[in-house]
Amino acid sequence: MHVKLSKVRKAYGKNVVLNDINMVLEKEKIYGLVGRNGAGKTTLLKIIAAQLFPSEGTVQVNEENPFENEAILSQLCFVKESQTYPDHFTVKDILLTAKATFPLWDETFCQALVARYNVPVKLRMRKLSRGMRSVVGVIIGLASRAPLTIFDEPYLGMDAVARQYFYDQLLADYADHPRTIILSTHLIDEVSELLEHVIVVKEGRILMQEDVETLRAGAVTVTGEKGKVAAFIQQQHVLSSQTLGNVTNVMIFGTISRQERLQAEAEGLSFSAVSLQKVMVHLTDQEKGSA
């Protein structure tokens, strides 16, 4: 499924949560949605899933408005950290209801995940630990096979091993059953290699939409003598800069040709790769208005 948001704005009175959101998600790709808490990620996802209404602008999923649209909603699975469940429901009740709801549900896959994660299916959902609750959400998201699957910080309370297993299953299942996946996360380094595209949200606006490979190749740290670094970065987009004595360390984002790089290296500058996590932190951490 593909998604298109045009000039979407969401405000509660004077409090603007999202502003001028324009984005296109192509079908059968894995997207990462990145931003700090309160940047508007969840609101954005809820609007895509028709669980919230935009104050202005349009949302289109497969060229249709998803609001009360069964054809769209039945193809959509939204796993969110804040999901609540009926107090009296056991895990089994929840999984059976999900099975009855999603047209492409794979029960065998669901059972395999339940077994692998040791989910206590007979327990009431509210008796589960935070991590186990997240696991149930993740299982629903994976087994639903929904053509548009949205995970909003789905791993709260899950340990590193459980998270890795989730990523592995997500990737393996996506490879066999391609679908559009949006993964909202702040653990970008853990998932960066799964993603094809990254969308960075900051203060209710989209700061950047970029191919992960481009981002990875474009972000680099330049270290060297103050004056030389300053000369080199004149044409570059600087993310951060640190100086110690006569040495400056600058993180830049842009394209540096092989030629430029070799020449700079010959002049005594050195280059090193930057993790996506660091790029994201710097992109989203800058003071208001200076970005």
Partner: peptide, 17 residues
């Protein structure tokens, strides 16, 4: 491509590239 993707834990589109 998919086997490569799963084995190296990377996006299948990247593996295909």
């Amino acid at each position: 491509t998919n086997q490569f993707a799963v084995f190296y834990r990377i996006n299948p589109a990247t593996a295909a590239k």
